[in-house]
Structure formats: C-alpha cells, structure tokens
C-alpha cells in the first residue's frame, strides 16, 4: 500500500513538474501497473481492466489534452442504477403511471405526517400546496403551485429525496401517483383520474415558470460598483437606532449550544 502511494505521488509530481510531458511517456509510466502488482486485493486494482492501463500510445494522438488513463469505463448498468435525474423536457423520467386518486392513499400513508393531508404542512415542515397570488405580498407562501417553475422538479425531487429518511424507496407507479396527488392539491391537475406517466408527464405545466429570470446583478445592481466610495461626512447627524436584535430576542444564548466533552 505504502509503496503504491509513493509511486502514485511520484507520478503526480512528475506530471505536474514536467508540465507538457508527452502522452506517450505517461502511458508507458502507466503500463507499469503498480496497483495490480502492489495491491491485488484493492478495489482500484480489481476494477481496472488490464487493457486500459496498458493503453497503447496510438489511442492518444487525437487529443491535445493530457490523458492519464486513470479510472475505468462506467458500465451501462452502473449508470442506470445511479442516473435518476429528470429534466423539464422529460429526459430521465422513470417508467410508470399513476393517478391522484391512487396517490391520495399513498400520500396519507407516506407523506402526510410531515406535510399534512392536503399539503398544508404539520408543524414546521414544508407547505406543498396553496399560496397562490402571494409572491408579491409581505408574506409570500412559496409552494409547488405558487412558486415552482417545473413539474419535472417535483418528480425528480420526490424520487431522489422523499420520503425524508426513506429516500429512493418509491416504485415508479407510486411515484407518479403521489406526484399526481400533489399536483392535484395544487390545482395543477383537476381530474383525480387523469393518468400521469413517463409519456404524458412532460405536458404538465406550472403557472409560475415565466417569473424566473437569470441573475442580472451586474446590470440591475450596477450602482454597487463605485470608483471612490464616500469617506468623510457621508451622512448628516448622528445615527438613529431603527431596530435591535435584542428586542426580538430569538438568539440562542451563549452556553446553550451542544455540550462538548
């Protein structure tokens, strides 16, 4: 192990120090296969097929970029197991189908203890439904219906992270049913028997999509770039205290933090 590490470090140093070492040199250095010899039982060695570590120089000339021949090809079935992301255009939607009617029971069983039976939330847990028309008010209620731009985000997030504490446990059919129910609670779909599936899901649109825009600070906050900020007599009079944290009194007191041994 330690010799393997030494070799790895030496190789890294050589590569950095050499700057523009030829790919050929690197490939031949790699062909020594130190991992396989030094640590046959290590995962790195086991997973590196010999044909890759001995990659011939002929494979490299196309690229001007340095290749180190480190890592191995990811297998399609490995990618399939971890590749769970869904995009607004529907890329990545898992197979399955479900209706809000079927989703209601599942939601009550799996989700309602935190999110409330109607997505209204229990305690401090996130509110999932409601809040329409509140975004420009003093107390915006940002829910899937009132705020989220894409329905795909709902299915992606529920699939990857919900239920909280039991993530990635829902079947494809249960996922579509629960998401259908959540969208039904938000009046995004109004028919309890409408079947959502990997085929139909991309047609579901949320109402707030158009209200997002890319970061524009360099334009809208251009005045924050200043050549010579004021240094003396920048405001008249003495400061008046407008508000104090002390009067709100929500700060955990010193010494009330977690105990340390």
């Amino acid at each position: 192990m330690s010799r393997f590490r030494e070799l790895a470090v030496l190789l890294a140093v050589a590569l950095i120090g050499g700057g523009s070492l030829a790919v050929v040199t690197i490939a031949s250095a790699q062909s020594g296969k130190p991992p396989a010899k030094e640590a046959p039982g290590k995962p790195a060695a086991k997973e590196t097929p010999a044909k890759e570590t001995t990659a011939s120089p002929a494979a490299a000339p196309a690229a001007t970029k340095v290749k180190y021949g480190v890592g191995r090809e990811a297998k399609p079935e490995e990618i399939a197991g971890w590749d769970i992301d869904v995009r607004p255009d529907g890329q990545g939607l898992p197979p399955g189908k479900g209706t809000a009617r079927k989703g209601e029971a599942l939601f009550v069983e799996q989700c309602a203890s935190c999110h409330g039976e109607f997505g209204e939330s229990a305690g401090r847990w996130p509110v999932l439904a409601g809040g329409a028309g509140t975004l420009a008010s003093h107390d915006p209620v940002k829910t899937i219906g009132s705020y989220w731009p894409y329905a795909s985000t709902v299915i992606d997030y529920v699939r990857r992270a919900m239920p909280f504490g039991n993530a990635q446990s829902l079947s494809g059919d249960d996922l579509y049913a629960i998401v259908a129910y959540v969208l039904y609670l938000n009046d995004v779909i109004t028919d309890q028997d409408l079947e959502l599936s990997d085929k139909t899901f991309p047609t579901v649109k949320l109402s707030n999509e158009a209200n997002f825009f890319d970061d524009d600070r360099e334009v809208s906050e251009k005045s924050f770039w200043k050549k010579d900020p004021c240094m003396t007599n920048c405001a008249a009079g003495t400061p008046t205290v407008l508000g104090r944290a002390r009067s709100i009194d929500v700060t955990p007191e010193d010494g009330k933090g977690p105990r340390v041994e």
């Binding site: 590749d83 995009r87 975004l135 731009p149 985000t153 825009f213 890319d214 600070r217």
Partner: peptide, 30 residues
C-alpha cells in the same frame, strides 16, 4: 452528468432562487 441544458432541480428552483418585491425571482445567482 454532462448535459446540454440545466436540470432546474429543487435546489435551483424552489430553493436558491431569490424572490424580488414584484413577485419575480432571480435564478442561478451563483
């Protein structure tokens, strides 16, 4: 994963977007 467009996932839509007074929101405020 390498793609040709952003994913608009929960942490860049519901969260980490900045709601302005007019009800519109900035996204990708990196």
């Amino acid at each position: 994963e390498i793609g040709d467009q952003p994913w608009h996932h929960r942490e860049e839509t519901s969260k980490y977007t900045d709601l302005l007074e007019n009800g519109k929101a900035r996204r990708f405020t990196y």
